[in-house]
Design a binder for these strands. Structure first.
Lengths: 222, 222
DNA sequence: TAGATTGTTAATCGATTAACAATC
DNA sequence: TAGATTGTTAATCGATTAACAATC
């Protein structure tokens, strides 16, 4: 990993995709791949892939291409997969619970330490082996454990408040699933939002384009 | 709505954010806003906002700015919120169920018609009022109803198969929550993916940047 | 009217693509 | 060696920002 100076967000957004594709290639038993072959399978140009990797160093061999396993490893390193990152979940409603149960945090280099909620019915229980503490214990827990990321699956109304507490306690990454645009002053704190709404509306726009000349009125088919 | 020729994806991605912010402004009782004020609150330049809107028409008044309610309405129209779009859910595991229960489809202009699963324990029940049918009935249902979008919350292994069935039956939008990169040939079908993994890894990269000089080794605080 | 702010064109900036020498 | 493919610089393309006449 060398240059690294100012990596554009466009490049950062592609890194996880590279990682994902390389994992799939590795599982499929592919040993080497060229930038043009990888580009074709990902819908990118070979040039762009080489340019992206060039931000971080030299990972290939001229005349040969890239070794799938070592490139995967290198990109994982760049993404911070081996840094021992940790995460806590704030809010164990439907969505928080579903992500705790479904999402493979460890495959992404994160250890899920705990969840927090205010509902007495879930406090004290575990979800998929993850202990659920009362939200009052948050500061105490954060003082005792190094937590890299707080995952926000609380209601939109409590989002900002919980976020403020996380930041005050030194958590530097917020994974925001609420539809609230978080207001954070500390410039060393990073927010990554998953806005379902924005995603569906973008899809709505795109499918609406093909309908332009069609009537808006829909009829049930018989 | 006029020009519309080739709207870049960068603009399309910002449209839902405009819409969201305008909704919040309207709820807060704000009647008019200038491009510079909106830009300040969204972290964009006034110029960019005017340029974005310029893709679609003229929505403001010189010397005055934009009326919040009518701009919101116009952008909603552009996004296709009033087109009577419909959606079905494929897979009612933790995530599918959570989204059915939590997500306000109607606020985004979508009517949630039905869900499909193979699990006999859920087939025949309803989730938050949404009927769950057996996956075998999918083609039959699609023949009877106009469905704009299929939401994929099935397992990664069945993702491609279910997607193929949706596309074959004429569904033109796929909202993909699986970690599978769907392979779709029909170029009039649009896929919008929500990759939790990509999102968390991007966050991982960003928080790792601030740690560059720190030791990788973490110690529990006493 | 004077001040404010848009719509819209032009200038700048940054990201993608092309090209090619280096080299495996 | 010859062929392939990278690393890296240069050229192109597209998106963002600046500027300003039009006008409310």
């Amino acid at each position: 990993m060398k240059r690294n100076a100012k990596v554009s967000t466009a490049v950062i957004r592609r890194l996880p995709r590279y990682y994902r594709h390389l994992c799939e290639l590795q599982e499929a038993g592919v040993v080497r791949i060229s930038s043009s072959a990888l580009g074709k399978s990902m819908g990118l140009t070979a040039s762009q892939i080489r340019q992206d990797l060039f931000c971080f160093g030299e990972f290939g061999q001229q005349g040969y291409g890239y070794k799938v396993d070592s490139l995967r490893e290198e990109i994982g390193e760049i993404l911070g997969i081996n840094r021992g990152h940790t995460v806590v979940v704030l809010g164990t409603g439907n969505l928080g619970r579903a992500i705790i149960q479904n999402f493979k945090f460890s495959s992404n280099g994160f250890q899920l330490l705990a969840a927090f909620d205010v509902n007495p019915k879930v406090v004290g229980t575990t979800i998929a082996g993850v202990p659920v503490y009362h939200a009052d214990q948050l500061e105490d827990f954060l003082a005792r454990h190094t937590v890299s990321v707080g995952m926000l699956t609380v209601s939109i109304s409590s989002a900002q408040g919980v976020c403020d507490r996380l930041v005050a306690a030194g958590v530097r990454g917020i994974w925001n699933f609420t539809n609230h645009e978080l207001d954070i002053r500390q410039k060393d704190v990073v927010v990554e939002s998953v806005h379902f709404s924005d995603s569906l509306l973008a899809l709505s726009y795109m499918i609406s384009q093909g309908e332009e000349d069609l009537p808006t009125e829909k009829e049930e088919k018989p």
